[in-house]
Amino acid sequence: MLVIRNLHARVDDKPILKGINLEIQAGEVHAIMGPNGSGKSTLSSVLAGRDEYEVTDGEVIYQGQNLLELEPEERAWAGIFLSFQYPVEIPGVKNIYLLKAAVNAVREHRGQPELKAGEFLKLVREKLKIMQMDEAFLHRNVNEGFSGGEKKRNEILQMQLLEPTLALLDETDSGLDVDALKIVGEGINRMRDPSRSVLLVTHYQRLLDIVKPDYVHVLADGEIKLSGDFTLAERLEREGYEGIEAA
């Protein structure tokens, strides 16, 4: 599904990713953990195509194609979805406009017929229910005035609607209280599927208790220092990043 080889990236003149190697197969959930400033968010942003980051070396192959050559929207059409750490507020654009436009743009490029208003509303109501969100969210401006938790739910709602092949979840657990964490976590679990992969970036273990990853990687100073199974997350929680790095 996704092969990352020797990926180097910088922002302005500051190198952040210093040779990432990672392979994700279809159906797998990988968690990337690491201290602040280790490059976790940069990795998901580079994969989604944010242009502030410059890739200086290495390659990313997604489903046989060179991912780095694609525009962000082309990546979305190809099935990549990024759940933002800080979802952007867009005053003046109704959430429902964004959702319907996004769903139909992605469907069009997958050769699926466009959803008419009625079909779309039926689908979106179903997903709202899963995310325990009120229908009023549809008619509010995109993320404007949403609480931190509401923004994250809105991200996972979008993921449910867009049905990505590769979901990049950037600190989706940050800013969530216990109840919201559960809703978001279960929202992610519902999406687990043999054909869908998830790259989950997080600082803490708590989301991983709900969304059990197949692999855990520790990212520090722009490199993956250690990989293992779920027990690695538990070790990190006990010993902290410093303990792991020293070992």
Binding site: P72, E73, L98, A102, H109, Q158, L162
Partner: peptide, 17 residues
């Protein structure tokens, strides 16, 4: 970037904003 990452084409994203 947010709009484009949702699959909205550049020209449409600009119109949205």
């Amino acid at each position: 970037f947010y709009l484009k990452s949702r699959g909205i084409a550049e020209a449409d994203a600009r119109a949205f904003l």
